[in-house]
Amino acid sequence: MHARADGQGRPLGFILTGGETSDYSAIPALLAMPVGKPRLFLADRGYDADAVREKLLMHGILPVIPPRANRKDPPSCDFRAYRDRNRIERMFNRLKQFRRVATRYDKTRISFEAFLSLAAAKIWLSHVPEPF
């Protein structure tokens, strides 16, 4: 499961791929989501590749991805900006509080995506202020 989140760590959309699929394959779908263009792309080391960085820079998005340990000439990473990635990790943890998401009880992709949407709506509703 790959997700796109806003600056507050609220989910904006999800892309489901197989467990054996590389993280790189989800990037075009994440960028094609009909929400505003991000300024930064915060991701873990699984997304570290020169082609990914070039594609993001071509779209005007600054990649904030730490380099893999085995890179000979590692690119720089803004670790001050990377600290905000904990909001994304907390979003995944909030989603996994729903047992159906954590254990993947749903048999079909459609039902799993539907429940992810419900869980995301519940997360968004927790950020809405209550009426007086």
Rank of each mutant, 00 (worst) to 15 (best):
A3S: 11
R109L: 07
A102Q: 11
P129L: 15
V64D: 03
E113P: 00
I123Y: 05
F115M: 15
V101T: 01
F79V: 13
K122S: 11
G7H: 09
F132E: 12
L30N: 06
L30C: 10
S22F: 02
P75S: 08
E20Q: 14
D106F: 05
R83T: 13
L12D: 13
R104V: 03
L40A: 09
G60Q: 03
R85Q: 03
L125K: 07
A26Y: 04
I61S: 06
E54A: 12
A121Y: 13
G60T: 05
P67F: 06
S117R: 06
T21M: 06
G36H: 09
R80Y: 05
I110E: 13
E113Q: 04
F92R: 15
R87I: 10
R53H: 10
R53Y: 04
K72L: 14
L95T: 04
L116S: 10
F79Y: 04
K72I: 15
V64Y: 03
I88E: 01
R94M: 12
L31K: 09
I61Q: 01
K72R: 14
F132N: 07
I88W: 01
P129K: 09
S76H: 03
I110V: 13
R109D: 01
V35M: 06
R4T: 14
R68Y: 04
D48K: 02
M58E: 15
T21A: 01
S76M: 12
Q8D: 11
S22Y: 09
A119D: 05
L31E: 12
S117G: 15
L95V: 09
F115Y: 08
V128G: 00
H127E: 10
E130Q: 05
D48H: 00
E130I: 14
F115S: 01
L42E: 06
K55L: 15
T103F: 13
G18V: 05
S126N: 07
Y105L: 02
G36V: 02
G9F: 14
E54R: 04
I15H: 01
F41I: 04
D23I: 08
R87P: 03
H2N: 10
D84W: 14
A114W: 08
L125S: 05
L62F: 00
R85P: 08
P75M: 07
R71E: 10
P131M: 11
L16Y: 12
R39T: 02
M91H: 01
R85L: 02
I88H: 05
P38M: 04
D50C: 02
V52E: 08
R83V: 14
G7A: 02
A114H: 09
G19D: 08
N86P: 09
E130H: 11
T103R: 11
L12R: 15
D50P: 00
T103C: 15
I27F: 15
F98M: 06
D48V: 08
E130P: 00
R53L: 05
S117K: 05
R104Q: 10
A49L: 00
A81D: 07
D6E: 06
L30Q: 10
S126V: 04
F132I: 13
P34S: 02
D6H: 00
D73Y: 13
D106R: 00
H2A: 03
R39K: 13
G7I: 07
F14G: 08
W124N: 11
D23T: 10
L57P: 00
